[in-house]
Design a protein around this nucleic acid. Structure first.
Length: 257
DNA sequence: ATGTCTGGCCCGGCCAGA
């Protein structure tokens, strides 16, 4: 079973890329972020035609998250964090699929910092942490996937000094991620690539992808019952090289269920 | 410091957000 997370950066403007990636890589379950469309504008029929059932939580122009599955219809369990500090923003959707609770998020970017956007980022991460602790306490076979907008360590960025002033690399944000993982979650990509630089995002400008000047901000955290079933994890770099593509590459986790 | 791309506004380039 292959579960992927992909910040598509506008589902309608990137639909050709999404379609090609789904066809070529055949993920079983996909969490999408940054749909940048209203619920009405979500390309439901086209996704259904590709063999995926979907649930989505859109928003005009910004944010937006969806879950796709070709291994059974997602049974929606949440469309916001329990203590979400701003319900206007579509940043979380969750479903039970094949006995797994899949939480898919688009965490706040937080720039510029310091400032209200950074405060919101930290408040949102606090709400995530509180809910994540409940999932750990309940021994739920859960995974929290998506764009966390956090570079966890110096090993997750091509040139740490270049990101020193960015909210994605701010000590307070990195601390939240560390505390979250320490609840007992397994960072699937880092677990399977302990000594490797592995990125999920490359800026559009300055030939970042060609130079591999990337950062790792898309993550999959597995609760202990699921971590036991982790086989492999990786990043599909191929779609990042396609025309009119997202600035992220899809990351994936393979579980033996 | 720079740099790129999209959606929104409403029809032509700007601006915000990332």
């Amino acid at each position: 079973m292959r579960i992927a997370s992909y910040n598509i950066n506008g589902i309608n403007s990137r639909f050709a890329v999404l379609e090609r990636w789904l066809k070529e890589f055949q993920p079983d379950i996909v969490g999408l972020q940054e749909l940048k469309c209203t619920d009405d504008a979500f390309p439901a029929a086209a996704i259904e035609a590709l063999g995926y059932s979907a649930i989505w939580h859109g928003q005009r122009a910004w944010n937006g998250v969806a879950l796709l599955s070709k291994v059974g219809r997602p049974v929606e369990t949440r469309r916001a964090l329990p203590a979400d500090p701003n319900l206007e923003q579509s940043r979380y959707i969750e479903a039970a699929i094949c006995g797994i609770l899949v939480g898919n998020m688009y965490a706040p970017n937080g720039n510029p910092q310091p400032g209200p956007k950074f405060d919101y980022k930290l408040a949102w991460l606090d709400a995530l942490k509180a809910y994540a602790q409940d999932l750990i306490d309940g021994e739920v076979p859960a995974m929290l996937i998506g764009d966390y907008n956090i570079i966890p360590t110096d090993e997750d960025v091509y040139k740490p000094e270049r990101w020193k002033k960015d909210a994605l690399f701010a000590p307070a944000a990195r601390e939240k991620f560390r505390e979250l993982v320490e609840q007992g979650w397994t960072d699937a990509l880092r677990k399977t690539h302990p000594d490797e630089r592995i990125y999920t995002f490359w800026h559009y400008w300055r030939n970042s992808f060609e130079r591999d000047a990337g950062i790792r901000i898309d993550h999959a955290l597995l609760s202990p019952p699921l971590a036991k079933k982790l086989k492999k994890a990786g990043v599909d770099r191929t779609p990042r090289g396609w025309e009119k593509t997202s600035d992220h590459g899809p990351m994936w986790v393979e579980l033996k269920l």
